[in-house]
Structures are given as C-alpha cells and as structure tokens.
Design a protein around this nucleic acid. Structure first.
Length: 423
RNA sequence: GUGGUUGUAGCUCAGUUGGUUAGAGCGUCGGUCUGUGGAUCCGAAGGUCGCCGGUUCGAGACCGGUCAGCCACCCCA
C-alpha cells in the first residue's frame, strides 16, 4: 500500500468547532483594527527572496535557516512569506503610499518558517499585525501597544505581561554594542558555545540566553538605558509616561532584544505562561530604518505581530472550551412525501432566519432525527410526518423546554414567526 | 539543524518472558421505543498494530532505518 498522504510537517488541518473560535477571534481583530483607524492590507503569500534578505537581515535566523525558498520556472528565487512587515513595506513603497502621509495598515494571515515544530510553533502559522508609518514620536508607539493590549484585555487574559525596552538608534546602538563586547570579551571562554557564537554575530542577543553559564555575566552586563542617547531616552521616557496615563501595566525588561535586524528604539513583547517555552504571543517595536533600506524615503514606523495560534492557546487556557448554546432548528421529515414538502420550507427558512437550519435527508425514525438535532445543538425541531401533512400543520418542538406547538404549514414565514415568538 | 519521547479502531489507551483468530472504554450506526431527544441495556460496523527492512520455526512486542506526533534547545509570533 502506498503510504498515506498526510499534511506536511508542522502544518495543521482545522475543523469545526475549532474554526468557529478562529472566526470569532478574527472578527474581534477586524473590529478592533477598524476602531483604531487601521485598514486591512493583503499581500502575496510569496515574494522575491531578496526582499527578506534585505528587509529582515542577512544574518538573522529567519533568513539563514528558516525560509521556504524555491526557484520558479523562470529561475527566480522566491520565498514563502516568513513575516509580514517587509512585504507590507514593499507594497506600500511600490504603490507610493508614503507620498500620502502617515499610513495605518493591518493584516491577518499565514506565515511560513522552516522550523522543527513544538508547542506554539508551526511551519505554517498565522499572524495578526499592524504597521503604523509616518510618525516618529512616542504617540505612535503607544497607539500600537494600546491596540495589542486591548486585544489581550478584551479577552480577560490575566496572566499576560507587557515587557518593553529600548534598543537605541544609529547613534547609541553601536556604543552599546561596544560596551557589551567590552563586558563579555574577557570571559569568552566561560560562556556557552552558543553565546560565544553570538558574541561576534549579534552581541545584543546574548542577553536573552537561557544558559546557566551565561547568567552571571548577563546580570552584570551594562544596561542599555545607561548608554541611550538623549533623543532615545526622551522617546522611551515619554512612552513609559503615556503607558502609565493609559493604565497599561508594563515592566521594563532590558533583556528584550528582538531577533530581526530592522528594529530601533522601542521594542516590546507580550508573554504568557500558558504557552510553554514559546512564551511570546506578541512582539513588535519601532523600525525607523526599514523603508529606507528597501530603497524608499526615510519613513519612521512602528508595529507588532501577534501569533494567532498562540493567542488562541491563551484564550483556551483562561476560559477552557465553551459549551455551545443551542441555536437554530432541525427540520425533520418522516417519509418521502413529507420530505418533498419540507425541503422547500427549509430553504425558505434559511432566507428568513438568522440561525442555522439543519436537515437530514435520510429515512430515519423520529427518534434518530431528534438525536441528530441534539448533536447539532439545535434549539427547535420542526416535525413533519403524515399526520401533520394531512392536517396542514407542522409541529414545532422547543428542545430546551420540551414544549410542542402546532403551526400552519402554509407559509414558511408563519413558521419563522412562530420560532421568533418561541425564542 | 540538535536532543528526548511516543506511534495499536474515528478518539483515549490495554496487549504478560516473542506463541494460534487483535482487546476495552468513548464515539458512530441499528435495536430496546410502529411518531418525541441527551439516559439504560443489547448488538453491529470499524485495524495489513505508522512505513520499509532485519533477527526468529514464529514479531504488535526484539534490532536498524525512515516518516510523523509531542516536548525541549537554537530562535521566534
């Protein structure tokens, strides 16, 4: 037997009722973005590989080992979108959006990264994110953080924590880098192998090492705040003040670094203990240099990305799986004659009712049909058998109160009205 | 990419030191109940034991490989 074809590693099929939870979250997201004045953008699921190499950074893990890259039939190197920010900026640039002033854009959709799957990590995952361009001041930082936090707050997620940090700009980041090198260099051989590698590549990332051997040196490392230039410090202080005034609780965490090259100044993360080792549900920050590095004007920008799968895990950890309330009607026909009469009624009811109308087309006993109605979580059953057919009525049964009533069969509108009353 | 761990019915899992014909619960379907549901009881369907190879008289059990799930590292949402 040929081996069964299965979904590729790290991808998943999503069925009802889980798809319902996805739709509910997406609905909240679209509404939230609208209230903050953001418009939705959709971009291709694949892009020229070059976009990510230049946008995300050549030495980042994403570019070095996590991209799904392939050659198309024209021998062009293409890559499945591993993150949204670079494509969104590319699209905005390509269509000259930046010449029309500040932009507020958001997206919801899949990203692809070639990684070994684990809890909260998949090869295809989905992100919601926003990009706010054209504002250099801390107000924009506050705006996107407030938007992300509102999503968390609205779902009553109590164990979420907002961490913020500033990683400086072109002026002070090199200084900090040097300070770190100076601090760690004398102890190179006492550091973990990973950290020794990081020291050359990206000393900032050494700060979030989990290795016990690195801990003592990380604890004594100089903090970025001590090196921030005046402009960056002012920006960071203003943001903290705004967050306080808006009652958004946060902690300053000097170890937040972000893995992508384009971040400047503000970086932030929202974490939760519900997610295992992958505790970050939302990560973002300011990326003032990205648009320029993609060949565009010098446009400041700030945004975040939020993992949909991880967020759903958080919601479930807090609320558990909710029992579905009864809703809609089960149309039950006993016999072929009744079925022929009821099918058009069901179709008409679907036009009239704002609730599901279920119907099973097999020949079954009433009992079996009622069991199906239960399984569908229907609120009402419409029973049409030979007696009702002869009498020109239909029996409406309330499956919660077990009450039966007769309704004239003549027009579906009458049935719909009866259901409306009964509710 | 590295490490640990697990693959037996749709789901959750038993299966003795290797031994004839593969087990349970839940779920599904039918009956119990010629037309009134979530329960009870009875019955049925459903498996080349992830896949390939090896050891053996004999493999679901042992060995190797491979694929996949889960978890962690690296890193990230």
């Amino acid at each position: 037997m040929p081996s069964k074809i299965t979904a590729p590693r790290g991808t998943q099929d999503i069925f009802p009722p889980v798809t319902r939870a996805w739709l509910a979250l997406e609905t909240v997201i679209h509404d939230l973005a609208r209230r903050f004045g953001y418009g939705e953008i959709r971009t291709p699921m694949f892009e020229a590989t070059e976009l990510f190499v230049r946008g995300v950074g050549e030495t980042t893990d994403i570019v070095e080992k996590e991209m799904y890259t392939f050659l198309d039939k024209g021998e062009r190197s293409m890559t499945l979108r591993p993150e949204w920010t670079a494509p969104v900026m590319r699209a905005a640039l390509e269509h000259n959006l930046f010449s029309h002033g500040p932009q507020r854009l958001y997206y919801v959709g899949p990203i692809f990264r070639y990684e070994r799957p684990q809890k909260g990590r998949y090869r295809q995952s989905h992100q919601f994110g926003v990009e706010c361009t054209g504002f250099a001041g801390p107000e924009a930082d506050l705006e996107v953080i407030a938007l992300a936090w509102e999503l968390v707050r609205a779902h009553g997620i109590t164990d979420a924590e907002l961490n913020i940090n500033s990683i400086g700009d072109d002026v002070c980041r090199p200084k900090y880098r040097d300070a770190l090198l100076e601090h760690f260099r004398p102890h190179v051989h006492e550091l973990s192998a990973d950290s020794q590698r990081r020291l050359d590549r990206n000393p900032l990332r050494l700060l979030d090492s989990k290795d016990e051997r690195d801990r003592p040196f990380i604890e004594t490392a100089p903090s970025f705040e001590s090196v921030l230039c005046d402009a960056c410090r002012e920006h960071f202080d203003a943001l903290k003040a705004y967050l306080g005034e808006c009652n958004i609780p946060f902690v300053v965490n000097p170890q937040i670094v972000r893995g992508l090259d384009y971040y400047t100044r503000t970086v932030f993360e929202i974490t939760s203990s519900a997610l295992g080792a992958q505790s970050t549900v939302c990560g973002g920050g300011r990326y003032d240099g990205l648009v320029k590095s993609l060949g565009g004007p010098d446009v400041p920008a700030v945004g975040f990305a939020l993992g949909i799968e991880r967020f759903l895990m958080m919601i479930e950890a807090v609320h558990g799986e909710r029992a579905l309330p009864r809703s809609g009607v089960q149309a039950i026909a006993l016999g072929s004659q009744a079925r022929a009469a009821l099918v058009p009624v069901a179709v008409e009811l679907r036009r009239l009712l704002d609730a599901p109308v279920f119907m099973d087309y097999e020949d079954r006993k009433l009992l079996a049909h009622l069991k199906i109605a239960d399984r569908n979580h229907a609120r009402f059953a419409l029973v049409l058998g030979s007696d009702e057919l002869a009498g020109g009525h239909i029996v409406v049964r309330d499956l919660e109160t077990r009450e039966d009533r007769r309704v004239p069969l003549g027009r579906a509108a009458d049935v719909a009205a009866a259901l409306g009353e009964a509710r």
